[in-house]
């Protein structure tokens, strides 16, 4: 059951990601990004990380994608055009992705036995454990994020409002 779901949603995820790259129209790309995000959420759920799965749906598939679609609509973006830059991106990007894939795959193959510590199933899984890490061990970074948001608000005021 687990394996079947993993295969189905893993394929969904990969297909969505490929479609995202191949589509010319930004709206189609954005919609396939939703497929990627949602199937990733199912994969998280399969790993037993229900909080992460829900956060993924609410934050990524929900909030961020709405922003994406709004921006595309506001800019009234049409189909992409082929330029010299896109050719260069093909030439540099595909070998780059392949190289990254090889590094990750070789790491996985050589270290499969000694992964131990960092397996997701081992520690931070449930909502309870996650909140303990977030609000206890990582309390200070969590609180300091408020300054980050404050700075971002200040930046929006300063950069977007007109001079008087």
């Amino acid at each position: 059951m687990h394996l079947a779901l993993f295969v189905i949603f893993g394929l969904f995820c990969l297909g969505g990601a490929l479609n995202l790259l191949l589509q010319r129209h930004p709206i189609n790309s954005a919609l396939s990004l939703i497929v990627v995000m949602s199937s990733l959420a199912v994969l998280y759920l399969l790993l037993g990380a229900e909080f992460l799965a829900l956060a993924q749906i609410i934050v990524y598939s929900g909030a961020i994608m709405v922003l994406f679609v709004f921006v595309i609509m506001l800019l009234n973006a049409g189909e992409e055009e082929k330029t010299h830059g896109s050719r260069a991106a093909y030439l540099a990007g595909i070998p780059g992705v392949l190289a990254l894939f090889c590094v990750l795959a070789s790491t996985y193959v050589t270290l499969r036995t000694s992964f131990g510590q960092a397996r997701l199933g081992n520690f931070i899984v449930t909502t309870e454990e996650l909140s303990r890490v977030l609000f206890r061990n990582l309390l200070l970074p969590f609180e300091v994020t408020s300054i980050l948001i404050l700075v971002a608000i200040l930046g929006a005021v300063v950069l977007a409002r007109k001079e008087q």
Binding site: P141, V144, I147, L148, V151, L154, G155, V158, L159
Partner: peptide, 12 residues
Amino acid sequence: ISLEISSISTYI
């Protein structure tokens, strides 16, 4: 997070 705070304020 503190790197982001420092960077975002300098971007602005």
